[in-house]
Computed example of a mutant assay.
Amino acid sequence: MASTVVGLDIGRTAVRAVELRGKNPTLRRHGSIELGRGAVETGVVADPHQVTAACRKLWKAGRFSTREVRLGISSGSVLVRQIELDWMPPADLKRALRYQVAELLPVAVDDANLDHVLLGEVTRRDESGQERRMVRILLVATARGAVDEMVRAVRAAGLRATTADLAPLALVRAAAAAGRREALAHAAEQGRPGELPPPRTEAVIDVGSDKVAVAVHTGGVPHFVRVAAGLGGDGLTHTLVAATGMEWDQAERLKREAAIEHEPTLRHATSRLVNEISATLDFYSDSDPEHSVASVAVTGAGAAHPSFLETCSRTLGLPVRPLTLSSVVEGVTPARRAKDEAPERPSDAYVVPAALCLGAIA
């Protein structure tokens, strides 16, 4: 277990990092550097020189105590699928995985980075009626080129990626931990300290600028992950630009401020985005009726419009809560800065890099 961990999230609009310390993690440092349009597209580095320069600038300004980072991966090239294989010891499964799943991949197995999450064992009967011991896993496959390009850009900045973690799975861990803390606090208020209700299945939705990640879990055990490229907060901005003719930066600002004169336009665009998310959850429900989604947690800068949570709850017919930085990390306080600067309270844009840290601290 590392005592100090830094999570690094490279998104379309910015490079963000968070440093956590301790078993009960506290926020030590955080920072971000904006990226120009086109540097990163749908989670894939398109301009490595710009990303490298931003990482260098971030480490110089943020004064992080280590150059080792847990790097977040979340691109449209990610394939996550629940599958069953003949049982074998975990070490053997790890070695044999490439050969077991080659036919399931959309690319050659040598062009993919593979990982998996063990979900448990099941017993099946084959065609002859014989029982077969099977292992159920969540297969995670990413295009090797996309991951390698991001790792190279980080390394060129003098950083070392100790782990490349799928960001939606990191958010699942964070949401599960936040839900557990909330449940324990509620039980204590009711005079039942330490009592936890049975875990319920939850969808964690991360709305970025140009992609949306949907992950479904029960008590931190993932069932489903999908990263949809081409969706996200940029769609709302595009709608404003098309409707008004204003410049992109002005539309982006008005979107976040929820300017009243543009509210109908923004609500319509938000509804279209939420309908796409609803279709993804419908697909999941059809494929895994055993774990019906009972609630939703939402994060991401693309969900910053005030009507997003309300529209989500109304369209999905489920309770929706924001997954905030303060719910992921206890005791979030303004970071210390230079003497002549006011303390800066970290925003919820830092949820993903904080979640990446939790995998090393847990």
Rank of each mutant, 00 (worst) to 15 (best):
A279C: 10
V51H: 07
R124V: 14
S292Y: 00
L358K: 00
L118I: 09
V69H: 01
V135D: 09
V204R: 00
E149N: 15
A304F: 03
R173V: 10
G62S: 07
S3A: 11
V227I: 15
A46V: 09
G11D: 03
T26M: 11
S128Y: 11
S74L: 05
Q250P: 00
S347Y: 06
R160L: 13
E257S: 13
A303L: 06
F283H: 13
A362R: 13
A175H: 07
P106D: 12
A242E: 11
V227W: 03
V18L: 08
T66V: 06
R98K: 15
H223T: 06
E202H: 05
D288K: 05
S307K: 00
R272Q: 15
G191Y: 06
L309E: 09
R155F: 07
G158I: 06
Y284Q: 09
E121P: 02
G235D: 08
T299C: 15
G76I: 11
D115E: 09
V296E: 03
G76Q: 12
N113C: 14
A301N: 13
G359W: 00
D92A: 14
M150F: 03
R29S: 13
T163K: 07
E19D: 04
R345F: 10
S209M: 09
A91T: 14
V225I: 13
R180F: 03
V207K: 03
D165R: 04
L169I: 10
G331I: 07
A183Q: 11
G191P: 02
S128K: 11
T142R: 05
Q190A: 15
V101L: 01
E41C: 12
V140G: 09
E344I: 14
R267L: 13
V329E: 10
L309T: 10
G31W: 04
A304E: 13
S75F: 04
A167V: 00
A146K: 07
L254G: 04
I361R: 11
P322T: 09
A294K: 13
M88W: 03
R155L: 03
T237N: 11
